[in-house]
Amino acid sequence: MSEVLITLIVELEDRPGQLLKVLQPISALGGNIVGIIHQRGKKTPLNRLPVEISFKIDGSKVENLIKELKSLGIVIRSFNEVRLTATTSVLLIGHLIHTDISDTISSIDSDGEAECVEMHVSMPEISGPSTAIITISASGEEKLKEALEKLREVCRRKEIMIIEPVNEELI
């Protein structure tokens, strides 16, 4: 099971019982509510109230959930792409540009479950080694590990030094 974080914005009529209508199907499918934000200041012209609901749920159940909510007549204003829930940064040092950095980065994302979401490259001299910090996000811890393993392989082959974080779990 790969858990995903969903942020859903629905428009609800401003009367009792409406929020429950949305929460019940989420709960029934094993979703775990992370946060609920009522956007009271942003009432729509039809006098509906936008409510943002964040929850974690098994990724395979998302599609059914959305169908279910729609069939209940709930107005879904937006529903974000499956948000990637595991993130880490790694530092790369070496001839990053000459060894095709976009190829290096895309090695992470072979199945769409992990991607490089941020990158900063510092290249003081054209001929010298450059340094980059990249942030990788994946749909779960396992996928993140896989992505890192792929990146390690590519870096070994291209003789790029990879500096990984010490685990961040702490005292």
Partner: peptide, 11 residues
């Protein structure tokens, strides 16, 4: 030995 001074800045 391969660590660049820029590494600290980007980190």
């Amino acid at each position: 030995t391969q660590i660049t001074p820029e590494a600290f800045q980007v980190a």
